[in-house]
């Protein structure tokens, strides 16, 4: 049956409610990009989400529409998701600092202890 709507534009379109139009094929919605937004100059670009686009130029246009529509943006990057090489959460322990690498932490350097001991020895 043809759809009758309160909206005259929809009635005019003569849509059939039994139609099978619009069924999607794989890649109909292109592929995905990851979006990085810089909120103001001097700050880092931060990942804000992803979107679908057929190429980088349209990805930038869609990123502006989807992620930067309320100000708060001075610059955008888009990167094809397929080009991002990432670590696995399973391997989170690779980021842990082990006790034998404490020499990389500032708080292990106790120079004042040595200075105080030296001064005490000089004055004795």
């Amino acid at each position: 049956m043809i759809i009758k709507s309160l909206d005259p534009r929809i009635t005019r379109a003569g849509l059939d409610d039994e139609s099978k139009d619009g069924i999607q094929q794989p890649m109909d919605q292109w592929f995905t990009y990851e979006v990085f937004q810089q909120k103001k100059r001097g700050t880092h670009h931060v990942h804000v989400g992803s979107l679908h686009a057929p190429d980088s130029e349209l990805a930038i246009l869609f990123a502006k529409e989807q992620y930067a529509r309320r100000g708060q943006c001075v610059n955008l990057w888009v990167v094809k998701t397929a080009d991002v090489f990432a670590t696995e959460y399973e391997d989170e322990d690779i980021f842990a600092t082990t006790p034998e690498k404490k020499y990389r932490e500032p708080e292990v350097y106790k120079v004042m202890d040595r200075i105080q001991a030296y001064k005490a020895k000089q004055n004795s």
Binding site: G22, D28, F31, T32, A82
Partner: peptide
């Protein structure tokens, strides 16, 4: 359905032949 159907030729025209899909990261 109409929106998907009428937009298809535009989407297909600008789709690159060698494009492939991977799920978004996060």
């Amino acid at each position: 359905r109409m929106a998907e159907e009428k937009g298809r030729w535009v989407r297909n025209t600008i789709l690159k032949k060698d494009a492939h899909y991977v799920a978004p990261l996060a």
